[in-house]
């Protein structure tokens, strides 16, 4: 019994060594993805051609598995000598960079759809009212459109964030030693898959519960009843 507990404790400690990398993968790819999604939303409303390109991008990245996208960026692009000789090669042969890039491109596609839904949900009456009291475009965006759109989009975005935390485990397939990568190595080392994987699962679960809680706090802060209290 004691030996069992010591084993689980040791495994959890080793797995936690991968937590910083997991968190780095999540934060960098979510931040990049959010910026890309906003840029795509702006481009969509700016020109017809950009709108077509963005919808094609969204179609491809939402319609295919993330693993294939990661594989494409990490292995596929390196097929060409031109890519291998270019300035981008030091980055493209780094698995961390490739994992972050593919996670960011993937979440950008989903986030841009969520953003579009949020913006579409802003009642036109609210915008007209803002205009009627003489708000400038920027102020209208800041005071009316964005707060309403973000509050509407937040539940869906929170699901996307959870999906991203889980998706980082795919980075272990391109050799990264984040929590899942370490778990895989420990399974091959100890042959005790059930114990090791349960510990790894528990780490992700705690991470996701904390994240959900955080988003919930933002949500109550953004809703009128919560901000008054």
């Amino acid at each position: 019994m004691m030996a069992e507990l010591a084993f689980l404790f040791g495994v959890t400690r080793k797995l936690l060594g991968g937590l910083p990398l997991t968190i780095e993968l999540v934060t960098l790819s979510v931040a990049t993805g959010a910026l890309l999604a906003v840029a795509m939303a702006l481009a969509r409303s700016a020109s017809r051609i950009a709108a077509v390109l963005v919808s094609f991008y969204v179609f491809v990245f939402r319609g295919s598995p993330l693993l294939l996208q990661m594989f494409f960026i990490y292995y596929g692009l390196g097929q060409f000598a031109a890519v291998r000789d270019s300035f981008a090669w030091p980055a493209l042969r780094d698995p961390t960079f490739c994992a972050i890039l593919s996670l960011a491109l993937n979440t950008a596609a989903y986030t841009s759809e969520i953003l579009r839904g949020g913006l579409a949900s802003v009642p036109s009456g609210a915008i007209e009212a803002g205009r009627a009291v003489g708000m400038s475009r920027v102020m209208l965006l800041r005071r009316v459109v964005l707060p309403l759109a973000i509050r509407q989009a937040l539940p869906a975005y929170s699901n996307e964030l959870i999906a991203m935390v889980k998706s980082t485990s795919l980075a272990s397939i391109v050799t990264l030693m984040e929590v899942s990568g370490i778990a895989y190595a420990l399974v091959s080392e100890t042959y005790r898959a059930i114990e090791v994987l349960s510990c790894a699962g528990a780490i992700y679960l705690v991470l996701i519960v904390l994240l959900t809680r955080g988003v919930w706090l933002v949500e109550t802060w953004l809703s009128p009843a919560g901000s008054r209290a």
């Binding site: 959870i162 935390v165 889980k166 998706s167 980082t168 485990s169 795919l170 272990s172 397939i173 899942s180 778990a183 895989y184 399974v187 042959y191 005790r192 898959a193 059930i194 994987l197 349960s198 790894a200 699962g201 992700y204 679960l205 996701i208 519960v209």
Partner: peptide, 18 residues
């Protein structure tokens, strides 16, 4: 819903084997 699918697959693949 809170655990990566990859880990669930590993759990059944290696854990089942175990």
């Amino acid at each position: 819903r809170g655990v990566p699918d990859l880990l669930v697959i590993y759990l059944f693949y290696f854990g089942g084997g175990q």
